[in-house]
Design a protein around this nucleic acid. Structure first.
Length: 431
DNA sequence: TTAGGGTTAG
C-alpha cells in the first residue's frame, strides 16, 4: 500500500504548513506511550478507519518532494491520531524541505528538532545528516554544529555531503576558521576531500576577502592532485575582480582554457557586476569582448546585469542597445529585465518612457511582480499621479501582493507636497 | 554522486 493521507485542500500552499505545525506541536496525548512508533504507511489504515475526512494519494517520495506542506500535514495528522512518528516520518519531512526550491525556514526547523527531542526518538545517521544539511541551508550553522556534536557523541560519522554543506554554510557566514576545522576533520573520518569539498572551503575565503588563503586552497588542490573545476576558478576570479585585480582574473581565465575548463556566462556577469559597483561601467564593453573572444554567449542574467550597469549610470541609450541586442540574440526578456529598464528610465526622470515600457511589458504577456509595482508606484509618486498610484495598489491587492508600506512611508516626503496625498492613497486602499 | 553560483526596488 502506498498511500499518503491529506486533509482536504491538498493543493494548499506552504502557508498551510504553519497551521499544521501548531497542531503538530500540541502535547502528545497521554495514551501515547502505549502506541508504538508506526510508519507513515500504517497511518493510512488507522486514519481511514477513524473516518477522518482525508484524501488518499500517491505517497511515493516523488509525490512528497518539494511539498513540505504535505509532509507536515502528515505529521500533524499522526499527532491528531495519537501516533508516535518514527525515523522515516521525520526523514520524509526533512527530505521534502530539502527538495523544496526555497531554503528551509529556520524557525520551522528548530520546532521540528525540538519535536524530535520530545518524542525521545534517537535519530539515526540519515536523519542526523539531513538535519545538518537542513540547518546549514537555513543559514543556521550553530544549530548544524550542535547536531554534528550530537552525531559524534552517538559515535556516528555524518555523511560527507552533510559536512560539505556545513563547511559551505560556515564560509557563507564568514566563519572560515570553523569551516577550516571541519574540513580538517574530514580526513579524520578517513575520507579524502575532492573538488567539491575544496570549493566549499574556498567559498568562505572568497566571501571574507581572504585572497591569500583562497590562493593557497588552489595550491593545495594541485599538491593533492585534485582538479579544479569551473566553480573553483569562478570563485577565485570573482575574488580577484572584487579586489580590483583584473589582470589576475584574466590570467585565471587563460589558465582555465589551458586546463580545458570552460568559463561560462556566470563568471562574466560577476565581473560585470563588480565593475558596475565600482562605477566602471565603461568596462562593460571590454567584458563583452573578452567573452566573445572566449566563444561564450551572454545569457539573460548577463544582459540583465549589463542593462543595469548602464542604467545605473544614466546611459539609457546603451541600456536600450543592450536590450535590443539581447532580443536579437533570441533571449526573451524576463521580469527582471523589464524592471531594470523601467527603473533606469524612472530614475533618470524619463517617466513617460518608464510608463511606456511598463505597458510594453504587460503587452508582452509578462505579469508584473512586487518589484515591478514598487518601481512603477515610485515613478507615479514622483509624478504625483495619485489616482493611478491608487489603481496600482488595487491591482497589487487583487493579485495578493503586499506593498512594502514602510518603504513608501519613508519615500513619501520626497514627493513634493505629496505626503498627505500619499497617505490618503494608502489609507483608502484596503489590503 | 563530497554544492551549487549570478540580475531588478528600498
Amino acid at each position: 500500500m502506498t498511500m499518503l493521507l491529506l486533509s482536504p485542500q491538498p493543493t494548499t500552499a506552504f502557508s498551510a504548513a504553519a497551521s499544521s505545525l501548531s497542531r503538530l506541536l500540541l502535547p502528545l496525548p497521554r495514551h501515547n506511550f502505549v502506541v508504538p512508533p508506526v510508519s507513515s504507511l500504517a497511518i493510512a489504515a488507522v486514519s481511514t478507519a477513524t473516518g477522518d475526512p482525508i484524501y488518499a494519494v500517491d505517497s511515493r517520495p516523488s509525490a512528497i518532494n518539494s511539498r513540505p506542506d504535505l509532509a507536515l500535514r502528515l505529521l500533524a495528522l499522526m499527532r491528531r491520531q495519537g501516533l508516535l512518528p518514527d525515523q522515516q516520518n521525520y526523514t520524509l519531512v526533512l527530505q521534502s524541505l530539502l527538495h523544496s526550491p526555497d531554503p528551509p525556514d529556520p524557525s520551522l526547523l528548530s520546532l521540528l528538532s525540538s519535536d524530535l527531542r520530545s518524542v525521545r526518538l534517537e535519530p539515526d545517521a540519515r536523519l542526523l545528516s539531513d538535519l545538518i544539511v537542513a540547518f546549514s541551508r537555513a543559514a543556521d550553522p550553530d544549530a548544524a554544529l550542535s547536531v554534528l556534536a550530537q552525531t559524534q557523541a552517538q559515535g556516528i560519522t555524518p555523511k560527507f555531503s552533510a559536512a560539505v554543506e556545513l563547511i559551505s554554510a560556515l564560509g557563507n557566514s564568514g566563519r572560515v576558521d570553523e569551516a577550516e576545522a571541519i574540513f580538517a576533520e574530514l580526513r579524520h573520518w578517513g575520507l579524502q576531500p575532492r573538488t567539491r569539498a575544496y570549493n566549499a572551503l574556498l567559498k568562505g575565503y572568497v566571501k571574507t576577502g581572504a585572497l591569500k588563503d583562497a590562493e593557497q586552497v588552489l595550491d593545495e588542490m594541485e599538491h593533492c592532485s585534485v582538479a579544479p573545476d569551473e566553480r573553483t576558478y569562478s570563485l577565485l576570479i570573482d575574488a580577484y575582480t572584487n579586489a580590483g585585480r583584473w589582470e589576475s582574473a584574466r590570467i585565471l581565465i587563460k589558465e582555465m582554457e589551458m586546463n580545458d575548463v570552460r568559463p561560462n556566462s556566470y563568471v562574466f556577469s560577476r565581473i560585470l557586476a563588480s565593475f558596475r559597483d565600482k562605477g566602471e561601467w565603461q568596462r562593460s564593453f571590454a567584458v563583452l569582448r573578452e567573452m566573445r573572444n572566449n566563444g561564450i554567449h551572454p545569457d539573460r542574467h548577463f544582459y540583465n546585469v549589463m542593462i543595469d550597469a548602464f542604467g545605473k549610470y544614466n546611459c539609457l541609450h546603451h541600456a536600450m542597445d543592450a536590450f535590443d541586442q539581447m532580443r536579437a540574440d533570441g533571449i526573451v526578456p524576463d521580469v527582471v529585465t523589464w524592471n531594470t529598464l523601467i527603473d533606469a528610465h524612472s530614475k533618470a526622470g524619463r517617466h513617460d518612457q518608464a510608463m511606456k515600457l511598463f505597458e510594453e511589458m504587460e503587452m508582452s504577456g509578462l505579469a508584473p511582480c512586487t518589484t515591478t509595482f514598487n518601481i512603477v508606484i515610485n515613478s507615479l509618486g514622483e509624478q504625483e499621479r495619485w489616482e493611478e498610484m491608487k489603481e496600482l495598489f488595487q491591482r497589487m491587492r487583487e493579485k495578493g501582493l503586499l506593498p512594502n508600506v514602510g518603504k513608501f512611508d519613508d519615500a513619501a516626503p520626497l514627493y513634493t507636497g505629496g505626503r498627505r496625498s500619499f497617505i490618503s492613497v494608502m489609507q483608502t486602499t484596503h489590503f
